[in-house]
């Protein structure tokens, strides 16, 4: 008898979650095996790449990334359009940087207005990412949820401190949530349970395990994602069987080495290519540990990652 692979016996699967609305809706998740282990299970929906845009002009983006967006950075709607039309973004993430109380402290209304403009400009799902200040995110995401009623936005990050307000708004106005916790299986589970108890439909949840940058804590996230996948697939833990989303571009491009110029770091070579590969290799690591939605920044890194996903899937 020839060699036969020892197969894993899975007892559960990741839920299929649909984000966006109407023609622009996309379904993620649904896998019944470890990422890309299609020799022993199904992965009906390939992981997708969402591109981030900011609701204010970034000041600290390295020049090689800025170059691709310079013409549209002052206009989130145009920026989003360019990402979809030119760079093939599967979804758009509006990073609400302007609302940070330690920074511009923009109002919920102005944030909602930006989101509406982006929604009208593109026909792909729109994800809205707060500033990770729980109170401010709650205020803002509630208003965004109301203003963009029934568009099935994805709103996050939602944590223990603000799940009630954001949860209620998402339920009332028909949106999906990103349940977020700091690199810990039990904490992840807890936020999901809180949302369930609140009455949030469990087919409108994504999980953000907290994303570390390549060389900056990636290993913690990598392992917690593997453990979340194991708990979901092997132990059939239905409190954890949600697709995962990683806010990667933001982490990678803020690290020192992704920003240094040739003069500052001559041994690291071409700054643009270095950053592209840091982002893309980071994405591959997270794809192998179970990411379903990768939030990325550089068009070339995205092109490479999409080609990789196709190659390892088909």
């Amino acid at each position: 008898m020839g060699f036969e692979i020892k197969k894993e016996s899975y007892t559960g699967g990741i839920k299929e979650i649909t984000i966006g609305k109407g023609d622009s809706a996309i379904t993620v998740g649904g896998e019944t095996c470890y990422p890309f282990y299609t020799f022993e299970g199904d992965m009906p929906n390939k992981p997708i790449v969402a591109m981030e845009i900011w609701d204010m002009e970034p000041e600290d983006w390295p020049e090689p990334v800025m170059a691709h967006f310079k013409d549209v950075m002052s206009d989130p709607a145009a920026w989003a359009k360019k990402c979809v039309e030119e760079f093939g973004a599967d979804a758009i993430v509006v990073q609400l940087k302007s609302i940070d109380p330690n920074d511009k402290d923009a109002s919920p209304e102005s944030a909602a207005e930006t989101v509406e403009k982006v929604l009208d400009a593109v026909s792909v799902p729109v994800i809205v990412w707060g500033c990770a200040n729980p109170e401010k995110d709650e205020q803002v995401l509630k208003v965004v949820a109301e203003k963009c009623q029934d568009r099935n936005l994805v709103l996050g990050p939602v944590e223990e401190k603000n799940y009630k307000g954001i949860g209620a708004a998402a339920m009332g106005y028909g949106h999906t949530l990103i349940s977020s916790s700091p690199i810990d299986v039990n904490l992840a589970k807890q936020v999901n349970i809180l949302l369930e108890n609140l009455g949030m439909p469990m087919d409108r949840i994504l999980v953000d395990p907290t994303t570390g940058g390549l060389g900056y804590g990636m290993e913690y996230t990598y392992s917690v994602m593997e453990r979340l996948a194991m708990a979901s697939l092997l132990q059939g833990d239905d409190k954890l069987q949600f697709p995962m989303i990683n806010n990667l571009g933001n982490e990678v491009w803020k690290c020192k080495e992704a920003k240094q110029t040739v003069e500052e770091a001559p041994v690291l070579g071409d700054p643009e290519r270095r950053g592209i590969l840091m982002e893309a290799v980071g994405a591959v690591s997270y794809l192998m540990s179970g990411s379903n939605i990768m939030i990325m920044r550089h068009p070339e890194a995205i092109r490479l990652v999409k080609a990789f996903i196709d190659g390892v899937s088909d």
Binding site: L214, G215, L268, R274, L277, A280, V284
Partner: peptide
């Protein structure tokens, strides 16, 4: 991530090696 003992590349350049070595370290 998935079990390669030795990985052979057509060339070694700093832009490729730095990210891969970071990943490996992690």
């Amino acid at each position: 991530a998935k079990y390669g003992g030795i990985v052979v590349l057509s060339d070694l350049t700093t832009e490729v090696m730095f990210p891969l070595l970071l990943e490996r370290l992690n």
